[in-house]
Amino acid sequence: MSPDAGIEVRIWRGGAQGRYETFRAPRRENQTVLDIVTWIQREADPTLAYRFACRVGVCGSCAMTVNGKPRWTCRTHVSKVASGGRLTIAPLRNLTVIKDLACEMTPFFEKWRRARGRFEAAISRDDPLVPVSPESPERRAADAAIECINCAVCHAACDVVAWRGDYLGPAALNRAWAAWNDVRDGDRTAVLAAAGAEAGCGNCHSHQSCAEHCPVGINPTRSIAGLKRAGLAALLRGAL
C-alpha cells in the first residue's frame, strides 16, 4: 500500500454492548497500530478511549485485538497486519470493556495475587545477602519467565480463560512459576498451593495460544507445565 492511500480502520465503540465505527486514517512509513489509534483520537474523534504509556513495548498497557489477534499495538507495524488495507481494532478478549478499547484490568491483576506471584522474604535486611548463581537451574527457569510486561495478551489469547473466567490464566501462573523458582522465598510451597488450587495450573490444556501470542517471547505454557510437575512432586513428597 502506498503511504498516501490512507487506511480504513474499524474501531470498537461502547462497552460490552457496542458497535464498530469506521474511520479513515492517513498511512505513513513505519506506522504502528498505536500510531493509527492515536491519530484517530487526536484528529478524528477525541472521545475515543484507549490506553498507552511508553510507546516502546515496555509498559504493557496498549494491548488490543488487531484483526482478530491480541497484540501490543505500539510494536505492531500496520504493514505486518493490515490485511487488504483494512484494520479492525477491538478491546482485549476475556476482560470487561470499560469503554471503546479500554478494559477493566483489576480482575487480571487480582489473579496475580491469587496465584501468589509475589516475593515473601525469609530473612530481614540485617541478614547477609543470599547468593543466587546465574547458572543455577532455578535462576535459569526464573529468567525465562521474568520479562513479562503484564500486557494481558496471553490472557486474551487463552481459550481456558474464555471458558471459565476464574481460571488464573497464563500471565499469573507464569509469574507464580518465576516466584517459585526464587530460592530466597520464605514459603515456596505456598506458591504451589495457590497455583495448583481450583481454576489453577491443573486446568491448562497446553493449547499454547499464550506462547504463540506473547509479544516478548515468553512461553507461559512451559511455566505452567513446570508448576504442574513441581506441584505433583510436592504432593507425592507430602509437602503439599
Partner: peptide, 11 residues
C-alpha cells in the same frame, strides 16, 4: 483437593 484430583487423573 484440586491438586489431588490432578494427581489421581495423571496416575
Amino acid at each position: 483437593m484440586t491438586a489431588r484430583l490432578f494427581l489421581v487423573q495423571r496416575l
